[in-house]
């Protein structure tokens, strides 16, 4: 959705024609309990440690804190994290 101009975006949003994550290119985070966490639409991995993972996004970073975390798979649009997840923080 990178090619849709901002104005058209706002129109689409106002009339509720498309979901917001697609229109604004926001990351989407899904968790399964506190053991799995999926981030779609990320912009890269900034830091990766067992207790802290920092993922870049358009408006800043997402910090995931937990224990014994492993990146199950790392693809260009998607990250799958496994482990014990305690916190998800949004930082501008």
């Amino acid at each position: 959705m990178k090619y849709i101009p901002r104005k058209v975006n706002r129109l689409l949003d106002r009339y509720g024609m498309l979901p917001k994550d697609i229109i604004y290119d926001y990351p989407r985070i899904t968790t399964v309990g506190n053991i799995h966490l999926y981030i779609e639409n990320h912009r890269g991995l900034l830091n990766f440690e067992e207790h802290e993972i920092v993922v870049k996004q358009d408006q800043g970073t997402i910090v995931i804190k937990g224990n014994q975390m492993v990146i199950k798979s790392l693809l260009s649009e998607e990250i799958v994290i496994e482990g014990t997840i305690d916190q998800v923080l949004w930082q501008k």
Partner: peptide, 12 residues
């Protein structure tokens, strides 16, 4: 990842 490689089971 940007080059299109998919990585799995990344452990520190």
């Amino acid at each position: 990842v940007d080059e299109g490689v998919s990585l799995h089971s990344v452990t520190r």
